[in-house]
Design a protein around this nucleic acid. Structure first.
Lengths: 146, 146
DNA sequence: ATTCCACATTAGAATTATTCTAAATTATTG
DNA sequence: CAATAATTTAGAATAATTCTAATGTGGAAT
């Protein structure tokens, strides 16, 4: 009784991205993009896999990795690298930046509109700017200047 | 005939950092910080280990990792994370940013003075900004706007 | 509907970067 | 020079991710 109504919006998104709307991709997309379960999220492959398993979705870790990379390639996700040996995937693909809480390893979005970056040199000949990442690393402790 | 004159400047740097100037730390520091061999460098543990071995320095990979982390903790190096699963160590610890060439995986410094970042929100209560990383990711191909 | 086939999924092995462990070595201090 | 504590080391262990080869599945064509 929940097999008959496909999540049409998600199906469309996947199709538009050239990805077959398979059972597992749909389930993962739902976890990632449906507002009630997610909204803006920063999630690792392991975490998403755990969520899927907890939600009675049968999907392998390999498929979670495959899907995350395919979604990223299709512009549905953005990969954020903050620490060596662990990748976060961000469901917010609009232009924005991040706070990173070093104690705890959590990420938080900083809207892109309010931040202005000036004085960057022009990229070398033959290259173009694919993306600019700004990561503000935070530690526990009050800032010193009063 | 090169054992008697210690690289006093490096010895001092290590001592000042609370690290014993051992044979291997000294050799690694030389590779990292001596202008002729290095200057501003972005290097991985594996690369540094290979250089050491090539230079007839007997040092284990574990010690290279240990030393890199100790140097980083002491403020002699800065760790730069650009891609999952690989850490670069930057011998330039002054305030600056990076170009990252996605095709090829190379890093290049962008001097900090010329870049201005405005409109960042104040960090949440109880935290302070440890560092701000700006990574401009470059792909091959000319920028589209003429 | 059934068949077919390219695309997807999977379990488990393999790989890669890094960290850990416990023993051997070495720098420093007395 | 001996004692002590820090350091180094080889190799095992871990962690995240990717690969592989076999099996399963979506959807177009019949």
């Amino acid at each position: 009784m929940n097999k008959d109504r496909p999540y049409s919006a998600l199906v469309q998104r996947l199709k538009a991205a050239g990805l077959r709307p398979t059972r597992q991709r749909l389930a993962l997309a739902k976890l990632l993009f449906e507002p009630q379960s997610g909204g803006d999220r920063h999630i690792t492959a392991e975490q998403l896999h755990a969520e899927a398993v907890a939600g009675a979705v049968r999907v392998s870790l390999a498929t979670v990795y495959n899907s995350l990379h395919q979604f990223t390639g299709a512009g549905l996700l953005r990969e954020v690298v903050v620490e060596p040996g662990r990748s976060y995937f961000d469901t917010n693909v609009s232009d924005h930046h991040h706070f990173y809480f070093e104690d705890g390893g959590r990420l938080q979005d900083i809207p892109g509109e309010q931040v202005h970056l000036e004085g960057l040199p022009t990229p070398p000949e033959g290259t173009r700017v694919a993306r600019i990442d700004v990561i503000v690393r935070l530690s526990d402790g009050e800032s010193e200047a009063s």
